[in-house]
Design a protein around this nucleic acid. Structure first.
Lengths: 217, 217
DNA sequence: AATTTATTGTGAAGATAATAACAATGTTTT
DNA sequence: AAAACATTGTTATTATCTTCACAATAAATT
């Protein structure tokens, strides 16, 4: 738990991976410098917000010039721990789980699904998108051995809590939860929800009730 | 654009589908009444926040008693327009797109993916999870005919903006964007992002830099 | 080297959201 | 029907986040 950096606002922390990705794009397209205004156009975040976000890490830019792409990139690579690969387990190799196994998180992230788990015999022992699938019975054994502390949960909702309890017991500290279940976890574990049905429904709600002239993340 | 309801805070609007889902659960398990404290436990939202959220719609509960599950459910069904089916188009039938075609949004949502589009000849004319797949060339024609105004975007990032422009021109008002691209749209169109890589990476960031004693949505 | 220009970093203000706390009041119990 | 209890709805408070606006200053131009 490296607290070498100041504790920055959550809202800022959530934008960092986004900035990082666009900086990589800029870099590979040969750009040397960038202003907060340009970056704002690309990532759709107000330029003042970008400058404030960056400022939590100190003065990264130069007045009248902007930011040096290379410098920023190097800085964020360190800040986002892009130098060390984070291995992740995926629990539940159904439709969504399989899609995620094919998704190349590594490309932008230095994060990799290293192992998958399911109960369906036909899947056990196979590899999907280069990731080996094991039986749920081996969950604790394997993730402990592999030292995995982050899991993606794509199981049917009724099993979500039970499996979460097992993950927590096996020292998993972060769960990306794609199930509709709201998980109960100790304060030492962090859960991020991606609730597909809720996202779709709230989009529809906004359209119906808010109408035009709204911009939003 | 029914503005029959007061314009409630965005944060509240985003929680409504969640409340609705849990109320349905409670209802089908035969529960007659529920307090904000109970609901809080289930959806992991502070009980004061729940009461405030509900209060935007008037006095839905009774002091000393709580909320009548049936009443709440009926109320939210109307508020969330659950009586009319919203048809959605899905653009890009790759791994993720296919998974979403199998995802039963209807169950909780009264939202249905009614049509899919792709460029791959092998897929055109087939049905996936009961949804017919058409060629991208027919995009404008078909969604206009079907009167669709909401789309899910699961195409490769480089095509995202071009297709978005076509969707907007074809009168699509809401886009659920699964691509990493940040889309440029007119103010009359609403985009919600689900950025899988960013979600995973920010989870990892929080674990490394915030450590324990954090709870979050 | 002086002037103009661009752009940061940030203090102040504003906006939005979450939470605490409790009077009001309906429900349940005795 | 009185007393005890439970729980809302809301006012006040606090926290978080965004945006404005501009002095400071480095870069570019003349």
């Amino acid at each position: 738990m490296s607290n070498d950096t100041v504790k920055i606002p959550q809202a800022t922390a959530k934008r960092l991976p986004l900035y990082y990705r666009f900086l990589k794009n800029l870099h590979s397209s040969g750009k040397q410098r960038v202003s907060s205004a340009e970056l704002s156009e690309a990532v759709k975040v107000d330029s003042a917000t970008i400058r404030r976000d960056f400022s939590y890490f100190g003065a990264l830019g130069k007045k009248g010039y902007g930011y040096n792409v290379n410098y920023l990139l190097t800085f964020f690579r360190k800040t986002l721990d892009q130098d060390e690969l984070t291995k992740v387990a995926l629990i539940g190799v159904g439709n969504l789980g399989t899609a995620l196994l094919h998704y190349n998180f590594l490309k932008n992230n230095n994060t990799k699904i290293a192992v998958g788990f399911d109960v369906e015999e036909a899947k056990i022992g196979t590899s999907i998108g280069d990731v080996p699938i094991h039986h749920m019975d081996e969950l604790e054994k394997i993730i402990t051995e592999m030292g995995i502390t982050v899991a993606i949960l794509t199981v049917p909702a009724p099993f979500a809590q039970t499996i979460t309890d097992r993950l927590v017991a096996a020292n998993v500290k972060g769960i990306l939860n794609f199930t509709p279940a709201r998980l109960t976890v100790p304060a030492t574990t962090r859960v991020h929800h991606i609730d597909l049905a809720v996202e779709l429904q709230s989009l529809v709600y906004f359209l119906k009730h808010y109408g035009v002239d709204e911009e939003e993340e």
